[in-house]
Simulated assay, not measured.
Amino acid sequence: MSAFDAALARQSWSKVTDEAPTHEELLPLVAAAGRVADHSSLRPWRLIELRGDDRLRLAKAIAKADGSSEPSSKPLRAPLLIAVVASFRKSGKVPRWEQEAVASGVAHTLSLLLDEAGWGVFWRTGGYTRTKAVAKAHGLKKREELLGWLYVGGKPAGKKPSRRKAVDAEALLTRMPPEE
């Protein structure tokens, strides 16, 4: 499948099965995703695998962030969560927003690669990604921020994800205005 075909075929799978790629299966996908454009090759990102009880710890951290006594069920909706972390580096050339864009690019590219490999993927974010309880559960360092999680599992047999609206490229690809 070409990159063009993979991009056109990409869908979010909000419901996945209990199957998930192994750590060893993830490694080449992460290596490929890490090839995104990265000004000064700072690699201002890292990924954290959450499986099994890790998801329960996250469920408790989200509950704490929300002020709830009941653990959140959200982290249990997929057998594998991949936390996407922006790890900001000191740089006089590469601003913070650009470093966050690199981390986001890695996450999106990884989601395309996982989808192409046959896995169901969706990216979950939320206000609690920036809370102390959730940051602590992930062991985030001082110059790191959690951007969200890729939820990964098997694609249910016979199910199709909901279709996204077509992109109106003509409306979104514009030209610079004429000189005045």
Rank of each mutant, 00 (worst) to 15 (best):
V134E: 08
T129F: 03
K142L: 08
G34F: 07
S91T: 07
I82R: 00
V85F: 03
F88S: 02
G139D: 01
I48W: 08
V167C: 08
L146A: 07
A63D: 11
P95E: 03
F88R: 06
L56K: 12
G127Y: 12
M1D: 02
R43L: 09
A83F: 09
T131L: 05
A59S: 15
L81V: 04
P178R: 08
H108F: 13
A6L: 09
W119Y: 12
A37V: 08
E170V: 14
K155W: 03
D38Q: 11
E116S: 06
L56E: 13
M176Y: 14
D38V: 11
S87F: 02
V94L: 02
L81M: 07
S68V: 01
S41M: 15
A83M: 09
V84E: 04
S104F: 00
G118R: 00
K74E: 05
D115Q: 07
K136R: 12
G52N: 14
G92Q: 13
Q99M: 09
D38K: 12
K15S: 11
V106N: 06
K136I: 06
K74Y: 02
R77Q: 07
W149R: 04
A103P: 01
K165G: 09
T174S: 14
L81P: 00
R130P: 01
L27F: 01
G52I: 11
